[in-house]
Write a protein that binds this DNA or RNA. Structure first.
Length: 134
RNA sequence: UGCCGCAACCGUUCUAUCGCCGGCCACGCGAGUGGCGGGAGGAAAGUCCGGGCAACACAGGGUCCCAUACUUCCUAACAGGAAGGUGUCCCGCAAGGGGCAACAGAGAGCGCCACAGAAAAUAUACCGCCUGCGAUAUCACGGCACCGCCGGAGCAGGUAAGGGUGAAAACGCGAGGCAAGAGCUCACGACGCAUUGCAGCGAUGCAUGUGAUGGCAAGCCUUAUGGGUUGAAAGACCAAAUAUACCGGCAGUCAAGGGCUGACCCGUCCGUUGCCGGGGGGUAGGUUGAUUGAGGCGUCGGGCGACCGCCGUCCUAGAUAAAUGAUAGAACGCUUUACAGCGACAGAACCCGGCUUACAGGUUGCGGCUUUUU
């Protein structure tokens, strides 16, 4: 399969970002702050991702660019699990990964971290789906 | 050969796999698929100057505010650059070479000048120098000298040469002059100004004349010149959904109200309600602005040079929450005995011209020094 990562799979709209920040559920798993919230089933894509690397953490634009690209690669190559799960649950989500470390990440450790986060995310989604609307 | 300085240029490369953003071509109703080719920098950085572009504003003058400040030239423009002048510092025996410069005005005015020092700006008088007066006493002291004269406490005045202080001391130095002294006078020199002469477009230099004398304008200021504000998140255009000013059509209702009509009924028009269509402004979103330009490269010509002109040739990122990447392997370079590790500074955001700052390593040219050989 193609591990693509096209424009549709990115969260670009300012309005959607505001909504996510205001209403999203969040959890922390080093080195990421994860925010997500569920949406009605969308035909185009099961998940939209927003990658955040704050200027406060990494001062140089070069470092921020590289960090974002690494995160994108890790997500791109592992997202099929999440997509399959979401299709099974018949839902879609908006998701943000906010980098919260002061050092440049390493590809292999970042891969492991991303894997963990996706696992945790899926279990959380499942929980919220089984007991909806408090 | 090595080192140093200056200038110009480069600033990792290749392969495989998986991706991202534009372009062109083909196929497809379309979503899309396939092929070909393109995709960060010398500083993309800081956002410090200048300009283009855009919107808004705008009678004229003054004040305030900001910027600039030796000259000429270059340029679209500049606080940039080139050539030159002046001052100053360094190297050199010299000839000469190189560095640096908020380099207009302190003779318009105000203000300031710590400590030290007598005094920091209407000069002053601590020591010193000079003049006058000069108590006691003719005794004592010193010198000259031989019946005398001079000095000596103190007081009054003159003086700015010398002393010491300081970042800086009333222009330097020599001579004249004087009681002692002093730009008081003179020669030479430093400085400002002026005009005249000569050289130069000019700053300025040389000569001449004349004048004054501490420094700070990066304290205020004066003079001259320039400056409208904002900034691509500018601006222009298209525009779903929802609500809807307004317009038209159809249907319903005469339940409130009005006209035709004095009253009632009926009718009809307006109204009102609903639906449909049109429609303006405008939100999400999209397009544009936006990459062909004071453009790059090359030949020739002009100019000391910055730069300019002619001709030829090339099209070389265009994203928008923001692409230009990731992984693995190899090569290259550096460190290290080796294992191994590392790969400078740094990421376009409307576009240009500069400035400033960061930068491992390498290449080329010129200059200087050194070594070796001939």
């Amino acid at each position: 399969m193609h591990n693509t990562f096209s424009k549709k799979e990115r969260l670009c709209s300012q309005k959607a970002i505001d909504e996510l920040m205001a209403q999203g559920t969040k959890f922390f798993s080093h080195p990421f702050m994860v925010r997500w919230h569920t949406l009605p089933k969308d035909a185009e894509t099961p998940a939209r991702l927003l990658i955040i690397v704050p200027k406060r953490r990494l001062r140089h634009a070069v470092d921020r660019n590289r960090t974002k690209r690494l995160i994108r690669e890790c997500y791109r190559q592992q997202k099929h699990k999440l997509y399959a799960f979401l299709n099974e649950q018949n839902t879609s989500i908006d998701l943000s990964l906010s980098y919260a470390d002061n050092n440049l990440p390493d590809y292999h450790t970042l891969w492991d971290k991303t894997e963990k986060i996706l696992d945790r995310l899926m279990s959380e989604i499942e929980k919220s789906q089984t007991e909806p609307e408090q």
